[in-house]
Amino acid sequence: MAGVIAAAFLWSPPLQGLGEAGRIFYFHVPCAWVGTLAFLCAAYAGLKYLRTRDLEWDSSGAAAAQVGFLFTFLATVSGAVWAQEAWGRWWNWDPRQTAILMVLLIYGAYFALRSSIESADRRASTSAAYSILAMVAAIFLVYVAPRLPGLDTLHPSPVLPGNDPDRGIESRILMVLLAALAGFTGLFAWMWRIQVRVDRLFLRREQNR
């Protein structure tokens, strides 16, 4: 992780047309990626819970959502900072901003739903079903939002321009980005495991009471 951060600041060339602020790219993109990944993991854990009715899967899904919420929030904030630098506005209802706001909303609703149900079995089945429904809604929105008029995206659509003549700099950007993605994914897996273990400790304390 430290290597990635150092590389992001020192080794990688500035992104074309974005200047030094573009370095936030190596932070913003992996955060968004992990937020989405965690969201898929929560929905998968929900499906597993409904199949097995094993409460371990429920706490696993909740833990993924907690970590995912953190990363999505960071992606939103870093995105807004970057948007201010690059486009001159914090927020402009770009489709990807809409989509990430939607993901944040879903996480919020998911936590509100969980905290308002007392029975563990009901909480588990309800939030599992909700995470699956919400995932479908989010996928749809990501594909729908860009089709609405007045919402043309400012995000570059292939995230990396593929046919840049200056291949050397290009590959350095790509390498740092891939390393950052891998690093953040590893960080997510580690945080998820810790969160699951913390939840398990709380549960055990509750059982022993």
Partner: peptide, 10 residues
Amino acid sequence: ALTALPILLP
């Protein structure tokens, strides 16, 4: 309202 909004937004 909270849970319905993301589902209904599209």
